[in-house]
Amino acid sequence: MINKLATVLLVEDDETHAMLIMRSFEGMGVERIQWVSDGEQAMDYLQHRGKYTDKEESPHPDVILLDLRLPKLNGHEVLKQIKSLEELRAIPVVILTTSKNEYDIAKAYLNYANSYLVKPLGLDKFQEMVKEIEVYWLEWNQTRPNVRINEGKEK
């Protein structure tokens, strides 16, 4: 079933959180984590700009884990840009943040977030959550196939 390594784009400004997440993914062995620490870098990565022009080195992600509080371009703005671009909007974006603020949650869904997760306290829960993300989004979930559909013809 797994014929290629799945890619996770982690957008996280807090280095310790990034390390926590990445280490929690360790041992599952089915993916590679691409970590960027602010919103601008995230967009550069997704659009293959700057240091991310090499598509082999910076492959198209199967899921994006997006923090909201980010320097320069915040998580909401990154989400909005992703969902407004045709070639990016099919990528599942899982918001992974410390904020339980209703405003943040509502705004994220308004901008078509695919899921909204709050970072839990305690390693057990943290690892459990990361495991579920991996299972659901990288194993069960079917990503968009590379098939073109001409909607105009059906009319």
């Binding site: 310790t16 959180h17 926590l20 839990p120 390693l123 057990d124 943290f126």
Partner: peptide, 10 residues
Amino acid sequence: LITIQGFLGF
């Protein structure tokens, strides 16, 4: 706190 709890676990 998340960091502390997480790395305490590790």
